[in-house]
Design a protein around this nucleic acid. Structure first.
Lengths: 202, 202
DNA sequence: TAATTAGTGAACACAGTGTTCACTAAGAGC
DNA sequence: GCTCTTAGTGAACACTGTGTTCACTAATTA
């Protein structure tokens, strides 16, 4: 990547741009944002912006990458299974840890999920979740692998995608629903299946 | 909406614009597309474009709406349940019907899922799926409703979001995996749950 | 065939882009 | 602290795309 400077001026300017950018994204559509707006709000010259980023798309790219890197680093799924068996307490703890992370990075996720013009954020987030998920699954020994490789491919996609939807819904609800309430339902859906979770007779 | 004209010239021009637009979206990013490009490719004057759409965002909006309307109209979920019990054959048939629809509208979905700069397509599609799904669920009598309203809220989000992910994955794979293979796995995940589907002991 | 209206193409002012250049000021390193 | 280096400034630049207008042409309707 860019060789990160240690010059205080650089650090200050970059931070100002990225901070301001998130603020602006919470206020107006990404499309209608101009480099001029960002520079003005960050109190820097417009030319200075171009010393750090190629354009606003490049800036978005970098902000998204940083945010998702931090998030994915919170995953340690395989530690929630013991001898190929799910540890309920641990998995519940994991879900709660994640939601706490989302709460702390509220500004980032709100900007990304709800700004109408952020291109592909959900998809990119899901892809990151998925690849980490697959990596973690690779570390377990699963009886289904030889029997049904297609299921091994489909199930992580199903689950990672489902999680993005839940997360977005949770933020829409102002992140007010207690994490443990959500964690419990997710656990039921994961272990019993969505239909039984709703009380359907299958 | 716009009172649809019956004038042949209008019909021809609109069709040309929308057709051309999808073509261009399959070739280059939405952001880098200009009204100039679209007009040139559709062989109309640039001014003519503005007689039909406010700008390229308005065009995108309308194309997405039409595409999703057609898709959601294919849903008749409640017919796949009999006396609150899932009919396996019917639900499998439903999944296959949907995938066939996606195949037929291949150009539209590819453009939307894989053009890097389409804003919020997945979210919008999921929202449409979700509301139709909720509507259908409302027509069934479910024992869980009184006991656990939060589950009734979470489960459809979980499932509709999961489906968007699967769909996108299916298109990435060139829509080559047989529908019935997918349908069978989805059914297992829905009835047994994602963990059991992978052979995990829960 | 006459009346209507969609489409043309050139011109317009305007806004944002990305780059340049000489200048200023802040930070790094001794 | 003093010098050397380099980040940031701000004005100017050409350029591209936007959205609108206007008089004119041509297709469609009734």
């Amino acid at each position: 990547m860019v060789s990160e400077s240690t010059d205080l001026r650089v650090i200050k300017t970059r931070a100002a741009i990225e901070m301001t950018f998130l603020d602006l994204l919470l206020q107006k559509k990404f499309n209608t944002l101009t480099v001029k707006d960002i520079a003005a709000a960050a109190q820097i010259g417009r030319g200075t912006f171009y010393l750090h980023f190629l354009d606003k798309y490049d800036l978005l790219e970098k902000v998204i990458d940083e945010g998702l890197n931090e998030t994915v680093d919170k995953f340690h799924l395989h530690t929630y299974f013991v001898d190929g068996k799910v540890s309920f307490d641990r998995i519940t703890g994991f879900v709660q840890t994640m939601f706490r992370h989302f709460k702390r990075n509220d500004r980032f996720f709100r900007a990304m999920f709800f700004n109408e013009d952020i291109p592909m954020f959900r998809q990119r987030m899901q892809e990151r979740f998925l690849s980490k998920f697959q990596q973690e699954i690779g570390q377990m020994s699963l009886p289904v692998i030889e029997k049904d490789p297609l299921m091994l491919e489909i199930m992580p996609i199903f689950v990672s995608s489902a999680m993005i939807g839940l997360l977005s819904w949770w933020f829409e609800r102002q992140a007010k629903i207690p994490e443990e309430e959500i964690a419990r339902r997710i656990l039921v859906i994961m272990t019993q299946g969505p239909l039984r979770a709703l009380g359907l007779d299958v």
